[in-house]
Amino acid sequence: MRTRTGAPPRSPDNARLKLLAEQLWSTVSARDEYSATEVVTRALEEGVDAESVLLDVIAVVQGQVGEEWAANRISVAQEHAATAINERAVAALAAHPVARTSPSRGRITVACVDGEWHALPARLLAEVLRLRGWQVDYLGAQVPTPHLISHLHTTRADAVALSSSIATRLPAAHAAITACQAIGVPVLVGGAAFGSDGRYARLLGADAWAPDARSATDRLARGPLPRPQFDHQPMDDLPHLADQEYTMVVRSRDTLVRTVFTALEDAFPAMRAYDDTQRERTAEDLAHIVEFLATALYLGDETVFGSFLTWTARILVARGVPAQSLPPALALLARELKDFPRAVRILELGTEALITTDHITAAGNHV
Protein backbone atom coordinates (compact mmCIF):
# COMPACT_ATOMS: atom_id res chain seq x y z
CA MET A 1 0.00 0.00 0.00
CA ARG A 2 1.47 3.36 -1.05
CA THR A 3 0.48 6.97 -0.92
CA ARG A 4 0.33 8.94 -4.15
CA THR A 5 3.48 10.83 -3.18
CA GLY A 6 5.49 7.67 -2.56
CA ALA A 7 5.92 8.58 1.10
CA PRO A 8 6.00 5.76 3.64
CA PRO A 9 2.51 4.74 4.79
CA ARG A 10 1.38 5.09 8.34
CA SER A 11 2.63 2.18 10.46
CA PRO A 12 0.31 -0.02 12.52
CA ASP A 13 0.55 0.12 16.31
CA ASN A 14 3.59 -1.37 18.02
CA ALA A 15 1.56 -4.09 19.77
CA ARG A 16 0.38 -5.44 16.42
CA LEU A 17 3.90 -5.46 15.01
CA LYS A 18 5.29 -7.12 18.14
CA LEU A 19 2.68 -9.85 17.89
CA LEU A 20 3.51 -10.43 14.24
CA ALA A 21 7.23 -10.64 15.07
CA GLU A 22 6.47 -13.19 17.78
CA GLN A 23 4.40 -15.25 15.35
CA LEU A 24 7.09 -15.11 12.70
CA TRP A 25 9.79 -16.02 15.22
CA SER A 26 7.75 -19.05 16.28
CA THR A 27 7.59 -20.33 12.71
CA VAL A 28 11.22 -19.48 11.93
CA SER A 29 12.55 -21.17 15.06
CA ALA A 30 10.47 -24.25 14.15
CA ARG A 31 12.00 -24.11 10.65
CA ASP A 32 8.53 -23.98 9.10
CA GLU A 33 8.94 -21.83 6.01
CA TYR A 34 5.38 -22.32 4.78
CA SER A 35 3.89 -21.02 8.03
CA ALA A 36 6.42 -18.18 8.00
CA THR A 37 5.29 -16.97 4.60
CA GLU A 38 1.68 -17.32 5.72
CA VAL A 39 2.34 -14.97 8.64
CA VAL A 40 3.72 -12.39 6.24
CA THR A 41 1.09 -12.66 3.53
CA ARG A 42 -1.77 -12.73 6.04
CA ALA A 43 -0.44 -9.54 7.63
CA LEU A 44 -0.48 -7.84 4.21
CA GLU A 45 -4.00 -9.02 3.52
CA GLU A 46 -5.14 -7.71 6.91
CA GLY A 47 -3.89 -4.23 6.04
CA VAL A 48 -0.43 -4.06 7.60
CA ASP A 49 1.73 -2.07 5.21
CA ALA A 50 4.53 -3.95 3.49
CA GLU A 51 7.31 -1.67 4.69
CA SER A 52 6.40 -2.30 8.33
CA VAL A 53 6.32 -6.03 7.72
CA LEU A 54 9.79 -5.86 6.21
CA LEU A 55 11.46 -3.64 8.79
CA ASP A 56 9.45 -4.07 11.97
CA VAL A 57 8.73 -7.79 11.68
CA ILE A 58 11.13 -9.67 9.40
CA ALA A 59 14.17 -7.54 10.26
CA VAL A 60 13.39 -7.78 13.97
CA VAL A 61 13.17 -11.56 13.77
CA GLN A 62 16.45 -11.72 11.87
CA GLY A 63 18.06 -9.69 14.64
CA GLN A 64 16.76 -12.22 17.14
CA VAL A 65 18.30 -15.01 15.06
CA GLY A 66 21.69 -13.34 15.42
CA GLU A 67 21.24 -12.90 19.16
CA GLU A 68 20.29 -16.55 19.61
CA TRP A 69 23.39 -17.65 17.68
CA ALA A 70 25.67 -15.38 19.71
CA ALA A 71 24.23 -16.79 22.94
CA ASN A 72 24.85 -20.34 21.66
CA ARG A 73 21.18 -21.18 21.81
CA ILE A 74 21.08 -22.13 18.13
CA SER A 75 23.75 -23.68 15.92
CA VAL A 76 25.32 -22.25 12.79
CA ALA A 77 23.17 -24.59 10.72
CA GLN A 78 20.02 -23.44 12.51
CA GLU A 79 21.03 -19.81 12.00
CA HIS A 80 21.48 -20.44 8.28
CA ALA A 81 18.11 -22.19 8.08
CA ALA A 82 16.38 -19.34 9.91
CA THR A 83 17.97 -16.77 7.62
CA ALA A 84 16.88 -18.73 4.56
CA ILE A 85 13.29 -18.77 5.85
CA ASN A 86 13.37 -15.01 6.42
CA GLU A 87 14.64 -14.58 2.88
CA ARG A 88 11.73 -16.71 1.67
CA ALA A 89 9.37 -14.48 3.65
CA VAL A 90 10.81 -11.38 1.96
CA ALA A 91 10.36 -13.01 -1.44
CA ALA A 92 6.74 -13.89 -0.62
CA LEU A 93 6.06 -10.31 0.40
CA ALA A 94 7.69 -8.91 -2.74
CA ALA A 95 5.56 -11.14 -4.96
CA HIS A 96 2.28 -10.32 -3.24
CA PRO A 97 -0.07 -8.05 -5.27
CA VAL A 98 -0.52 -5.71 -2.31
CA ALA A 99 3.22 -4.92 -2.32
CA ARG A 100 3.67 -4.35 -6.03
CA THR A 101 4.44 -0.83 -7.20
CA SER A 102 5.35 0.83 -10.46
CA PRO A 103 8.63 2.77 -10.61
CA SER A 104 8.07 6.51 -10.29
CA ARG A 105 11.55 7.65 -9.20
CA GLY A 106 15.09 7.03 -10.35
CA ARG A 107 17.24 3.90 -10.47
CA ILE A 108 19.30 2.49 -7.59
CA THR A 109 21.74 -0.42 -7.56
CA VAL A 110 21.83 -2.33 -4.26
CA ALA A 111 24.71 -4.72 -3.57
CA CYS A 112 26.84 -6.27 -0.88
CA VAL A 113 30.55 -5.55 -1.07
CA ASP A 114 32.93 -8.25 -2.22
CA GLY A 115 33.30 -10.90 0.49
CA GLU A 116 30.08 -9.95 2.29
CA TRP A 117 27.72 -12.92 2.52
CA HIS A 118 25.11 -11.35 4.83
CA ALA A 119 22.69 -10.30 2.11
CA LEU A 120 19.40 -9.96 3.98
CA PRO A 121 19.94 -6.32 5.08
CA ALA A 122 20.62 -5.33 1.48
CA ARG A 123 17.59 -7.29 0.29
CA LEU A 124 15.39 -5.51 2.82
CA LEU A 125 16.65 -2.15 1.58
CA ALA A 126 16.02 -3.13 -2.03
CA GLU A 127 12.42 -4.05 -1.27
CA VAL A 128 11.77 -0.86 0.72
CA LEU A 129 13.16 1.19 -2.15
CA ARG A 130 10.84 -0.59 -4.58
CA LEU A 131 7.89 0.11 -2.30
CA ARG A 132 8.83 3.79 -2.32
CA GLY A 133 8.83 3.89 -6.12
CA TRP A 134 12.45 3.34 -7.10
CA GLN A 135 13.61 1.10 -9.91
CA VAL A 136 16.03 -1.24 -8.14
CA ASP A 137 18.77 -3.52 -9.41
CA TYR A 138 19.46 -5.88 -6.52
CA LEU A 139 22.76 -7.71 -7.10
CA GLY A 140 22.86 -9.77 -3.91
CA ALA A 141 25.77 -10.99 -1.80
CA GLN A 142 29.49 -10.75 -2.45
CA VAL A 143 29.59 -8.64 -5.60
CA PRO A 144 33.14 -8.25 -6.97
CA THR A 145 33.90 -4.60 -7.68
CA PRO A 146 34.72 -5.12 -11.41
CA HIS A 147 31.31 -6.74 -11.93
CA LEU A 148 29.60 -3.93 -10.05
CA ILE A 149 31.28 -1.33 -12.24
CA SER A 150 30.42 -3.25 -15.40
CA HIS A 151 26.80 -3.29 -14.30
CA LEU A 152 26.80 0.45 -13.61
CA HIS A 153 28.18 1.19 -17.06
CA THR A 154 25.07 -0.41 -18.58
CA THR A 155 22.33 0.87 -16.27
CA ARG A 156 22.93 4.60 -15.63
CA ALA A 157 22.07 4.23 -11.95
CA ASP A 158 21.43 7.39 -9.95
CA ALA A 159 23.27 5.90 -6.97
CA VAL A 160 24.70 2.73 -5.50
CA ALA A 161 23.71 1.44 -2.07
CA LEU A 162 26.46 -0.75 -0.65
CA SER A 163 25.94 -3.02 2.36
CA SER A 164 28.51 -4.58 4.67
CA SER A 165 28.02 -6.18 8.06
CA ILE A 166 31.57 -7.24 8.95
CA ALA A 167 34.40 -4.76 9.44
CA THR A 168 36.95 -6.98 7.68
CA ARG A 169 35.13 -6.19 4.43
CA LEU A 170 35.85 -2.46 4.73
CA PRO A 171 38.99 -2.51 2.54
CA ALA A 172 36.88 -4.09 -0.20
CA ALA A 173 34.16 -1.52 0.48
CA HIS A 174 36.70 1.28 0.06
CA ALA A 175 37.74 -0.13 -3.31
CA ALA A 176 34.11 -0.33 -4.41
CA ILE A 177 33.30 3.21 -3.22
CA THR A 178 36.33 4.59 -5.03
CA ALA A 179 35.56 2.70 -8.24
CA CYS A 180 31.92 3.81 -8.32
CA GLN A 181 32.86 7.43 -7.72
CA ALA A 182 35.51 7.24 -10.44
CA ILE A 183 32.75 6.67 -13.02
CA GLY A 184 30.58 9.39 -11.54
CA VAL A 185 28.12 7.31 -9.49
CA PRO A 186 27.53 8.42 -5.86
CA VAL A 187 27.57 5.83 -3.10
CA LEU A 188 25.37 5.44 -0.04
CA VAL A 189 26.62 2.84 2.46
CA GLY A 190 25.09 1.06 5.41
CA GLY A 191 25.51 -1.92 7.66
CA ALA A 192 27.24 -2.66 10.96
CA ALA A 193 30.70 -2.63 9.35
CA PHE A 194 30.58 1.13 8.91
CA GLY A 195 30.11 1.79 12.64
CA SER A 196 27.03 2.68 14.63
CA ASP A 197 27.68 6.35 13.88
CA GLY A 198 28.91 5.93 10.30
CA ARG A 199 32.50 6.86 11.17
CA TYR A 200 34.00 4.44 8.66
CA ALA A 201 31.65 5.61 5.93
CA ARG A 202 33.10 9.08 6.33
CA LEU A 203 36.66 7.79 6.61
CA LEU A 204 36.35 5.83 3.37
CA GLY A 205 34.78 8.73 1.49
CA ALA A 206 31.23 7.47 0.94
CA ASP A 207 28.83 10.14 -0.31
CA ALA A 208 26.20 9.23 2.29
CA TRP A 209 25.58 6.84 5.17
CA ALA A 210 22.42 5.54 6.77
CA PRO A 211 22.00 3.45 9.92
CA ASP A 212 19.09 1.40 8.55
CA ALA A 213 16.95 0.76 5.51
CA ARG A 214 14.24 3.26 6.44
CA SER A 215 16.80 6.04 6.96
CA ALA A 216 18.55 5.17 3.71
CA THR A 217 15.33 5.36 1.76
CA ASP A 218 14.38 8.64 3.44
CA ARG A 219 17.79 10.09 2.51
CA LEU A 220 17.41 9.16 -1.14
CA ALA A 221 13.87 10.55 -1.17
CA ARG A 222 15.09 13.99 -0.02
CA GLY A 223 16.97 14.52 -3.25
CA PRO A 224 19.65 13.00 -5.46
CA LEU A 225 23.09 12.40 -4.07
CA PRO A 226 25.57 14.79 -5.71
CA ARG A 227 27.60 13.32 -8.52
CA PRO A 228 31.14 12.82 -7.20
CA GLN A 229 34.00 14.85 -8.55
CA PHE A 230 36.63 12.16 -8.42
CA ASP A 231 40.13 13.62 -8.22
CA HIS A 232 42.02 11.46 -5.75
CA GLN A 233 43.34 7.97 -5.09
CA PRO A 234 42.46 5.69 -2.14
CA MET A 235 45.83 6.43 -0.53
CA ASP A 236 44.77 10.06 -0.22
CA ASP A 237 41.99 8.98 2.13
CA LEU A 238 44.27 6.84 4.31
CA PRO A 239 47.82 8.24 4.26
CA HIS A 240 48.88 5.96 7.13
CA LEU A 241 48.89 3.06 4.67
CA ALA A 242 52.19 4.36 3.34
CA ASP A 243 53.98 2.40 6.08
CA GLN A 244 52.95 -0.88 4.34
CA GLU A 245 52.04 -2.58 7.64
CA TYR A 246 48.59 -3.46 6.37
CA THR A 247 49.97 -4.96 3.17
CA MET A 248 52.61 -7.01 4.99
CA VAL A 249 50.16 -8.41 7.54
CA VAL A 250 47.71 -9.41 4.80
CA ARG A 251 50.43 -11.09 2.77
CA SER A 252 51.79 -13.02 5.77
CA ARG A 253 48.41 -13.99 7.22
CA ASP A 254 48.71 -17.75 6.68
CA THR A 255 52.25 -17.86 8.03
CA LEU A 256 51.27 -15.84 11.08
CA VAL A 257 48.35 -18.16 11.85
CA ARG A 258 50.50 -21.29 11.54
CA THR A 259 53.32 -19.89 13.65
CA VAL A 260 51.09 -18.61 16.45
CA PHE A 261 49.00 -21.79 16.44
CA THR A 262 52.12 -23.93 16.87
CA ALA A 263 53.49 -21.77 19.69
CA LEU A 264 50.15 -21.40 21.47
CA GLU A 265 50.21 -24.95 22.82
CA ASP A 266 53.22 -24.05 24.99
CA ALA A 267 51.91 -20.62 25.94
CA PHE A 268 48.45 -21.99 26.77
CA PRO A 269 48.87 -25.60 28.04
CA ALA A 270 45.11 -26.23 28.23
CA MET A 271 45.17 -26.38 24.42
CA ARG A 272 46.99 -29.72 24.59
CA ALA A 273 43.72 -31.33 25.65
CA TYR A 274 41.74 -29.92 22.72
CA ASP A 275 40.10 -32.35 20.34
CA ASP A 276 40.37 -31.96 16.57
CA THR A 277 37.26 -29.78 16.34
CA GLN A 278 38.50 -27.42 19.06
CA ARG A 279 41.89 -27.14 17.40
CA GLU A 280 40.27 -26.37 14.06
CA ARG A 281 38.15 -23.64 15.63
CA THR A 282 41.20 -22.21 17.38
CA ALA A 283 42.95 -21.90 14.01
CA GLU A 284 39.83 -20.20 12.61
CA ASP A 285 39.80 -17.77 15.55
CA LEU A 286 43.46 -16.93 14.95
CA ALA A 287 42.71 -16.25 11.28
CA HIS A 288 39.89 -13.89 12.30
CA ILE A 289 42.21 -12.12 14.75
CA VAL A 290 44.75 -11.49 12.00
CA GLU A 291 41.99 -10.31 9.64
CA PHE A 292 40.68 -7.80 12.16
CA LEU A 293 44.21 -6.66 12.98
CA ALA A 294 44.74 -5.99 9.27
CA THR A 295 41.45 -4.10 9.14
CA ALA A 296 42.45 -1.94 12.11
CA LEU A 297 45.74 -1.19 10.34
CA TYR A 298 43.87 -0.27 7.16
CA LEU A 299 41.51 2.07 8.98
CA GLY A 300 44.12 3.47 11.34
CA ASP A 301 41.65 2.80 14.17
CA GLU A 302 42.50 0.38 16.96
CA THR A 303 38.97 0.44 18.40
CA VAL A 304 37.68 -1.87 15.67
CA PHE A 305 40.15 -4.51 16.89
CA GLY A 306 39.33 -4.06 20.56
CA SER A 307 35.62 -4.32 19.85
CA PHE A 308 36.16 -7.53 17.89
CA LEU A 309 38.19 -9.07 20.72
CA THR A 310 35.64 -8.33 23.42
CA TRP A 311 32.88 -9.66 21.15
CA THR A 312 34.94 -12.81 20.50
CA ALA A 313 35.45 -13.30 24.24
CA ARG A 314 31.70 -13.13 24.80
CA ILE A 315 31.10 -15.68 22.04
CA LEU A 316 33.73 -18.03 23.47
CA VAL A 317 32.34 -17.77 26.98
CA ALA A 318 28.84 -18.54 25.69
CA ARG A 319 30.25 -21.72 24.14
CA GLY A 320 32.18 -22.79 27.21
CA VAL A 321 35.52 -22.14 25.55
CA PRO A 322 38.30 -20.54 27.63
CA ALA A 323 38.74 -16.96 26.45
CA GLN A 324 41.94 -17.00 28.51
CA SER A 325 43.66 -18.23 25.35
CA LEU A 326 43.25 -14.83 23.73
CA PRO A 327 45.93 -12.79 25.58
CA PRO A 328 48.67 -15.43 24.97
CA ALA A 329 47.71 -15.54 21.29
CA LEU A 330 47.94 -11.76 21.05
CA ALA A 331 51.34 -11.78 22.76
CA LEU A 332 52.65 -14.38 20.32
CA LEU A 333 51.30 -12.38 17.40
CA ALA A 334 52.98 -9.23 18.74
CA ARG A 335 56.25 -11.14 18.95
CA GLU A 336 56.00 -12.11 15.30
CA LEU A 337 55.17 -8.52 14.33
CA LYS A 338 57.72 -6.80 16.54
CA ASP A 339 59.02 -4.74 13.61
CA PHE A 340 55.56 -3.27 12.95
CA PRO A 341 54.91 -0.58 15.58
CA ARG A 342 51.30 0.16 14.64
CA ALA A 343 50.40 -3.53 14.71
CA VAL A 344 52.10 -4.03 18.08
CA ARG A 345 50.30 -1.02 19.53
CA ILE A 346 46.93 -2.30 18.31
CA LEU A 347 47.63 -5.72 19.83
CA GLU A 348 48.61 -4.13 23.15
CA LEU A 349 45.46 -2.04 23.26
CA GLY A 350 43.40 -5.09 22.35
CA THR A 351 44.89 -7.01 25.25
CA GLU A 352 44.09 -4.13 27.59
CA ALA A 353 40.50 -4.10 26.33
CA LEU A 354 40.20 -7.79 27.20
CA ILE A 355 41.74 -7.46 30.64
CA THR A 356 39.52 -4.54 31.60
CA THR A 357 36.37 -6.57 30.91
CA ASP A 358 35.05 -9.45 32.94
CA HIS A 359 35.21 -11.93 30.04
CA ILE A 360 38.59 -13.40 30.96
CA THR A 361 37.53 -13.89 34.58
CA ALA A 362 34.21 -15.38 33.54
CA ALA A 363 35.96 -17.70 31.10
CA GLY A 364 38.02 -19.13 33.93
CA ASN A 365 34.91 -20.89 35.18
CA HIS A 366 34.90 -22.98 32.01
CA VAL A 367 38.54 -24.13 31.99
Rank of each mutant, 00 (worst) to 15 (best):
R2M: 12
R4V: 12
G6V: 03
A7Q: 06
P8M: 12
R10L: 07
N14A: 15
N14Y: 10
L19C: 14
A21K: 00
V28S: 02
A30Q: 08
A30T: 01
R31G: 12
E33F: 06
Y34V: 15
Y34K: 14
A36E: 00
V39K: 00
V39G: 07
V40S: 04
T41G: 03
L44R: 09
E45W: 06
V48Y: 10
V48I: 07
D49T: 07
A50Y: 06
E51C: 03
V53I: 02
L54P: 15
I58Y: 11
A59N: 00
V60D: 00
V65I: 05
E67M: 12
S75V: 09
S75L: 05
A81E: 02
T83E: 01
A84Q: 03
A89N: 03
A92F: 02
H96Y: 07
V98A: 10
V113D: 02
L120Q: 10
R123H: 04
E127I: 06
R132A: 04
Q135W: 00
V136F: 05
L139V: 10
G140S: 00
A141E: 05
Q142W: 13
T145K: 06
I149P: 10
T155F: 09
D158S: 13
V160C: 00
A167H: 06
A167P: 07
A175H: 05
A176L: 08
A179F: 07
P186R: 00
P186G: 07
V187I: 04
A193P: 13
F194V: 08
G195E: 08
R199K: 08
A201F: 05
A206I: 07
A206L: 09
S215H: 12
R219E: 07
L220Q: 01
P228Y: 04
Q229G: 13
Q229P: 11
F230H: 12
H232G: 03
D237M: 01
L238I: 09
L238F: 04
P239Y: 13
H240K: 03
L241K: 07
Q244S: 10
Y246M: 12
V249C: 00
V249S: 09
V250S: 04
L256C: 05
R258N: 14
V260S: 04
V260P: 00
E265V: 14
E265S: 15
D266K: 11
M271R: 15
R272I: 10
D275E: 01
D276A: 14
T277L: 15
Q278T: 08
E280S: 14
E291F: 06
F292N: 09
A294D: 05
A294Q: 05
A294L: 06
L297Q: 02
Y298D: 05
V304A: 13
F305Q: 00
G306M: 12
S307Y: 13
T310I: 08
T312Y: 14
I315L: 15
V317G: 09
R319T: 09
R319G: 02
R319V: 02
V321T: 11
V321I: 08
P322A: 04
A323L: 02
L333E: 08
A334R: 15
L337F: 11
L337I: 08
K338V: 10
F340P: 14
F340T: 13
P341K: 01
P341R: 06
R342N: 10
A343D: 11
A343M: 04
R345M: 11
I346M: 13
I346N: 14
L349Q: 15
G350R: 08
E352S: 15
T356V: 14
T356E: 14
T357Y: 11
H359E: 15
H359Q: 15
I360E: 01
T361Y: 12
A362H: 14
A362V: 15
H366M: 01
H366V: 13
